[in-house]
Design a protein around this nucleic acid. Sequence first.
DNA 1: ATACAATGTGAACAGTGTTCGCGTTTTCAA
DNA 2: TTGAAAACGCGAACACTGTTCACATTGTAT
Lengths: 206, 206
Amino acid sequence: MRRKPQQARSQARVEQILDVAEKLFQDIGYEAATTRAIAAHAEVSVGSLYQFFPDKEAILKALAVRYMQTQYQRFLDLHTAQSITLPLSSYVDRMIDVFDQFYTDYPGSRAIFEQLLDTITWSAIEKIDDFDYQVVTELARFFHSRQSSLPIAKCEHIALVITKTITELLWLSLSRDQEFRQELVAETKLMILSYLKQYLDEENNG
Amino acid sequence: MRRKPQQARSQARVEQILDVAEKLFQDIGYEAATTRAIAAHAEVSVGSLYQFFPDKEAILKALAVRYMQTQYQRFLDLHTAQSITLPLSSYVDRMIDVFDQFYTDYPGSRAIFEQLLDTITWSAIEKIDDFDYQVVTELARFFHSRQSSLPIAKCEHIALVITKTITELLWLSLSRDQEFRQELVAETKLMILSYLKQYLDEENNG
DNA sequence: ATACAATGTGAACAGTGTTCGCGTTTTCAA
DNA sequence: TTGAAAACGCGAACACTGTTCACATTGTAT
C-alpha cells in the first residue's frame, strides 16, 4: 500500500478498487484486466488507483493475502493442545480437510491464487511464502511435541515436504469434478499418513 | 511454429533465435527479454522472428518442449520389461533419480521451466501437460503390470498423485543448496515408497 | 474566511508485442 | 542464361500497456 488512506472516503475507495479488481481478475484474468479498466469500473481515476497501490501486482497480492490470512488462521485453530493426543490418522484427516474445506468455502480464492502463480515473479514473493513458512514452522513444532525424539531440524524437513505436497495435490483437485476431487483428497490423506507413520509412532492412541 | 523454414538459411536462423532466446531468458528473464532484444542479439529483424514464431510465448514453449522430450525419454528408458521384477524400493530409487539427474545434467532447464510456470496462462498449456499425461499413463500401465489386481483407473490416480508430488518436491529442491537438495530427494523417495507399499505388495522380491 | 494539506484527475510518457507493405534473395522452368 | 514467381527479410508504424506528474478539487483547522 503506497499511502495509508487517512480519510473515510478514501478508505471506501480502496475497498471499492479491491472488490472490482477481484471480480475483473476472476472474469477476464489478470492480464486482460487493465489498470484503466479496474479504475473505470471502480469509478475512480488511474491516478487514484496508483495512490494506494504501488503497481498492478500489489492489487493482486492484497487480494491473495486476504485469503491466505483466513487459511492460516484455520490451520492454527486445528493445532490446539489437545490435538496432540489425537490418533495420527484422525489428525491427518482433519488437517487436510482444513485445506479442502477452505477452497469449498472460498471458491473465489482459487482464481486469485491461480493468477498469482501465473503472474508473480518467483523471486519477489516475500510476503506470500511467509505464510508457507509460518505453516511449516508451526507444523514442525507440532511434530516435535508429538515425538520429541525427532530433531526439530528433521521435523522441519518433514513439515516442508508435507506442506508442499498437500498444497500441490489439493490444488490439482480443484481443476477436476467433485468425484475426482474427493478421490484425490483421499489419496492425499493416505500418502501423508503412510509417510508420517515412518517417523511418528502411535503409542498414544488405541 | 508459424512457417516451417524451407531453406537451409532460415533453418539456421530458427536455431540462432532459440539459442539467443534461451540465453536471454536465463540471464534477464522472460519479461525483460523483449522481442526486439532477442531479434537484435540473433542478428535478425523482429519481422523474421515473427515469421517462425506466432508470438513470444511460442519461443519459450519451444525451448521447454525440447527439455521435456529429453526428460520423458529418460523416464521411458527406465520402464523396461525387466524393471517390473525390481524390488519396489529400488524402482522408486531409480525413478526419482531420473528426475533428479535430469536437473543436474541440464541445469539450464530450470530457468526455462520457471519462466514457463510464471508466464503461461494455466488454461493454454496444451502440449505442455501432454508430457505430464504421457508420464502418468505410462506409470499407470507399469503399476498395473506389477499388480494386475489393481484396477487401471486406480493405477492412474496413483500415478497422477505420484507424478505431481515428485515434480513439486524436486522442483522445490532446486531452490536450495546441494545438501538440502539431497535430503529432500531422500524424503521424497521415502514418501513415495511408503505410499506405494499401500497398494503394491512385494511378493516378487527378497 | 483563509491557508494548507490531502486527495483526485487524466493527458502524456516510455515501453511493449505484433503487423504489414515493400525491398531482397532464392528457386526453377523456359 | 533469363525472368518471373515464390520464399524470405526488414523495420517503421500501430495499438495497447503500466505508470507518472503537473494541476484541479476537496477537506480540515485556524
